[in-house]
Design a protein around this nucleic acid. Structure first.
Lengths: 158, 158
DNA sequence: CAACATATTAACGTTAACGTCAACGTTAGA
DNA sequence: TCTAACGTTGACGTTAACGTTAATATGTTG
């Protein structure tokens, strides 16, 4: 129940301890609570956020800087799910929301583009692979053929 | 007909001239022919290869080093489509081909993983977006409501 | 053919994203 | 309580992927 220490987080996320501290340093995760002595005490939320960071980094190829901006958006969004509706300058709200909508739309388009390019590359690799497996099959067939030849040869010797 | 100069290639690919020379330096493209004076003369093939490099870099997030390895494979494969079958140590051939098959399989797995992560991220963004559009709709409705209120108010004033 | 835009090499500079090391405090277990 | 294992903060080091600058040669245009 007492939260995770940095080494636990490292094991679970696959990040190094250095990377985890670095990610905190540049604002990718909120600074965790500290124990009396100063040891960082992470929560499940930290781990989940780190996993999302890793996913964005690996899959999207975003720089950590870009991810940080994206995270800020997500934060604003989830935070405002309850916070925003409570009135307060409704015209500014609308403006903000429309801006978010546009950004999200752009991100989604980028994702679609990536997905389709990945598909294209997959098809290319699969074509390559077919040629390779065909080559293997042919060589193996030739191999078996030469074995038969050899057997016939030895049988004739008897 | 006389090929492209580096600035042409830069314009068409969006790379800088420095990057193009660097890509040649690390073996991502074959060194182009030179004019009498030493000016690089690129062909369409160079441009196309650079575009594939860019795609792999941006979309897959591969390092240039990884891309170089991949390119080498592709080169070997397309080159050997005609070259390999012509006999010459069939046992080494089989070994090579099996190795290629394994590598291609691993690459394909990586691509699948990326694709599924992209899908997951898309879904998350779409959920976000639904909340945003819902928020917009609600605010607009409230806006219209207050307009009606105002109109009623002014009508009463008549 | 003069002059002005482009090209080339060489070399050092830069930024992101950590790695590594030292010096030191903290925590957990026998 | 002692100690081995783990954590913390600097601070400097490293690598990839180019950027920038300088000195020099080449190509092109009126």
């Amino acid at each position: 129940m007492s939260g995770y220490k940095i080494d636990d987080v490292a094991r679970e996320t696959g990040l190094t301890k250095r990377a985890i501290r670095y990610y905190e340093e540049i604002g990718l995760i909120p600074p965790p609570e500290r124990s009396g002595g100063g040891t960082r005490q992470y929560t499940r939320a930290h781990i989940e956020q780190l996993q999302r960071v890793i996913s964005a980094r690996d899959v999207l190829g975003f720089s950590l800087q870009e991810i940080q901006e994206y995270m800020a958006y997500a934060q604003e969004l989830t935070g405002h799910r309850e916070l925003y509706p409570q009135l307060r300058e409704p015209e500014r709200q609308l403006e903000k929301l429309r801006e978010m909508d546009g950004t999200l739309d752009a991100q989604l388009r980028k994702l679609d583009e990536k997905a389709s390019k990945i598909l294209a590359m997959k098809e290319e690799l699969e074509r390559f692979r077919k040629r390779v497996t065909a080559g293997i099959a042919r060589l193996e067939a030739e191999d078996r053929q030469s074995e038969y030849d050899n057997m016939e040869g030895t049988e004739n010797e008897k």
